[in-house]
Design a protein around this nucleic acid. Structure first.
Lengths: 113, 113
DNA sequence: CTGCATCCGATAGGATACTG
DNA sequence: CAGTATCCTATCGGATGCAG
């Protein structure tokens, strides 16, 4: 959630979603087909994958291109806008990688399970 | 949500929460009392504020210091770890500020309300 | 003032099965 | 293959009221 960045509390960009970030990661190296996304996002259900893709499509982050025919072939890829999200995402991921141990240690300290 | 950054899907840092980001913003300039947080976070309920603070406390992002006495006085402030989160946060907010119009335009295009 | 207890509604995420 | 349809559950955020 990027809410509050500018004072608003808009449910911005669906980046609070559980799968959005991972989905972007899967798409960062190029177009992927529906079934190619189901596998690496282990055990996401088709329904949720569809929902997530549609939401990102609405926000202009991914583009959907259907090649008619049999069997159907649909590809999803990041738009330039979607690609631009990778920068701040990576900043967050870098932080996470660097500070995850500290967070986990803090959790341990509070819940000495 | 920073999930998936390193391949895991841990519910990392509670940054999927609705209030976490705004709360960090409110604390970035120094310690704040409970009631000083209720106001700028317009209409967050005490319950939710408490939940959010507790969660961040568990993760080592904020420190809680209670000054006993009457009336009670409790202050919350960002830990160094919490402060370090401001960097990636600002990267995201910069992105949001820059690309919000594009996202909104995309939404309009898909839902020509 | 600072918070905890309880109840509630909305929504997100998921399991399963079915269709063009 | 690429979804859709239905149902279910957990969780989140909130309203209200009470307590130290």
């Amino acid at each position: 959630m990027f809410a509050g960045c500018d004072g608003s509390h808009a449910p911005l960009f669906r980046v609070g979603g559980k799968w959005t970030w991972r989905l972007i990661r899967c798409l960062e190296d190029g177009p992927r087909r529906f079934s190619e996304l189901l596998v690496p996002l282990r055990y996401i259900t088709p329904k949720v994958l569809t929902e997530t893709l549609r939401a990102m499509e609405r926000d202009g982050l991914v583009a959907r291109s259907a090649h008619p025919g049999m069997p159907p072939r649909v590809e999803y890829e990041l738009t330039p806008l979607g690609h631009s999200l990778l920068d701040p995402m990576n900043a967050c991921c870098t932080w996470a990688a660097a500070h995850l141990p500290a967070v986990l240690a803090a959790r341990e300290a509070h819940e000495p399970a």
